[in-house]
Computed example of a mutant assay.
Amino acid sequence: MTQLDLPPWPYPRWIAHRGAGKLAPENTLAAFREGARHGYRMFECDVKLSADGIPFLLHDATLERTTNAAGPLRGQSNVAGHHHWHALSQLDAGSWHCAAYAGEPLPTLEAVARYCLHNDFFLNIEIKATPGTEHHTGAEVARHAARLWQDAAVPPLLTSFDVESLEGAMQSAPELPRGLLLDELWTGWLERALTLGCQAVVCNHRLWDTSSVTQAQSAGFRTLSYTVNEKVDAQRLIALGTDGIITDRVDLFEPDQNIQLSI
Rank of each mutant, 00 (worst) to 15 (best):
M1N: 10
L4E: 15
L6G: 09
P10F: 10
P10E: 06
Y11D: 05
P12D: 13
R13C: 04
I15W: 02
H17G: 07
G21A: 03
L29A: 06
A30R: 05
F32K: 05
R41V: 01
R41W: 01
R41C: 00
R41T: 14
F43R: 02
K48T: 15
L49D: 01
L49S: 00
D52S: 14
G53N: 12
I54E: 12
F56A: 04
L57Y: 12
L58V: 02
A70C: 04
P72A: 12
R74K: 08
R74F: 08
G75R: 01
G81W: 11
A87L: 12
L88K: 13
S89R: 07
G94H: 09
H97K: 14
H97Q: 12
C98S: 14
A102N: 06
G103Q: 06
R114L: 01
Y115R: 07
H118F: 03
H118E: 14
N119F: 03
N119D: 13
N119A: 13
D120A: 15
L123D: 00
N124F: 03
I127Y: 15
I127H: 15
I127P: 06
P131H: 09
G132Y: 10
E134C: 01
H136P: 10
T137M: 03
V141S: 06
V141H: 11
A146T: 06
V154E: 08
P155E: 12
L157G: 01
L158D: 07
L158G: 06
T159M: 05
S160E: 00
S160D: 01
L166M: 10
G168Q: 03
S172R: 14
A173D: 04
L176A: 10
W189T: 00
V201L: 02
V202D: 00
L207A: 03
W208P: 03
S211R: 05
S211K: 07
T214I: 07
A219W: 05
F221Y: 09
F221H: 04
T223R: 09
L224M: 15
K231P: 11
V232G: 02
Q235I: 01
L240D: 11
T247N: 02
V250H: 11
F253T: 13
F253M: 06
E254V: 05
Q260K: 12
S262V: 09
S262M: 08
